[in-house]
């Protein structure tokens, strides 16, 4: 076991080509999916948190259900839609990073929406009353609300990124964990462990934990800033 750990550190330090490729694919997928989820989720979260309209309650329930969607179910859904016999099979996206990104967007956008909605619900009435009292228009009120939520937006992004980078169920189903192509950190850990090759798995595990640690430290700092 000690040898495997030593080898893992050696792989990290020497910059093993396969390890670097896995990291690059993971970074590409996680960054793309979390940024897209942020672009879609933040305005929707702001809207759901601040506006009161018919059907809002239904949308909130749908979003909360999607927040708890099991990744394998999401993976299965995309697999069926994009497999050769599926309705979108002609796009030939199965086992590509693009489809992994798409599946992750569906998984993590509800988290961003839910995160923003909870925060904005708390402050929106006060912001609205104060801004309307000044005679400010709808657009300016929306900008002020977004400005009030800026740390929360960062926090929601980091949560989305952390979920994306650690997700395994959906990406393994739609990506297929193809070496040098769609293999990401989580799928590679599973693959190498199944093969009995622990060192690369441990190396990836160390990196994944370090990323998670960094993300959580930044989130705590942001939350401290928010509570001040």
């Amino acid at each position: 076991m000690q040898t495997a750990v030593e080898r893992a550190f050696q792989l990290i330090v020497t910059g093993n080509a396969e390890l670097v490729n896995i990291l690059l694919v993971t970074a590409r997928m996680s960054l793309c999916s979390s940024v897209i989820a942020l672009i879609i989720g933040v305005p929707l979260g702001l809207l759901l948190g601040s506006a009161r309209f018919k059907g809002r309650g239904v949308l909130l329930v749908i979003n909360r259900t999607l927040m708890g969607m099991p990744p394998v179910v999401c993976g299965l859904l995309f697999y069926m839609l994009f497999s050769g016999v599926g309705p979108f099979g002609r796009f030939k996206l199965l086992f590509t990073v693009q489809l992994m990104v798409l599946a992750q967007v569906v998984l993590i956008t509800p988290l961003v929406i839910g995160n923003m909605e909870t925060y904005v619900s708390d402050i929106s009435q006060t912001v609205r009353e104060n801004a309307r009292g000044l005679g400010l228009g709808r657009f300016k009120r929306f900008l002020l609300l977004a400005n009030e939520s800026v740390y929360q937006i960062f926090s929601a992004y980091l949560l989305a990124f952390a979920r994306a980078i650690a997700e395994v169920g959906a990406v393994s189903m739609v990506g297929g964990a193809i070496a040098w192509k769609t293999n990401v950190m989580t799928t590679a850990i599973m693959q190498y462990t199944n093969r009995g090759d622990f060192s690369l798995g441990i190396a990836l595990g160390i990196i994944l934990l370090s990323v998670s640690l960094i993300v959580n430290v930044v989130i705590s700092l942001l939350q401290r800033r928010l509570s001040r």
């Binding site: 006060t126 912001v127 009353e129 104060n130 801004a131 309307r132 009292g133 000044l134 005679g135 400010l136 002020l144 400005n147 009030e148 800026v150």
Partner: peptide, 24 residues
């Protein structure tokens, strides 16, 4: 008519004091 309103709960927007005052 133009109506200005100061709610019971005063709120400072995440701006400098002078930027807050110049909002309208």
């Amino acid at each position: 008519i133009s109506v200005g309103y100061m709610p019971q709960k005063s709120f400072a927007f995440r701006l400098s004091t002078i930027s807050n005052i110049r909002l309208s």
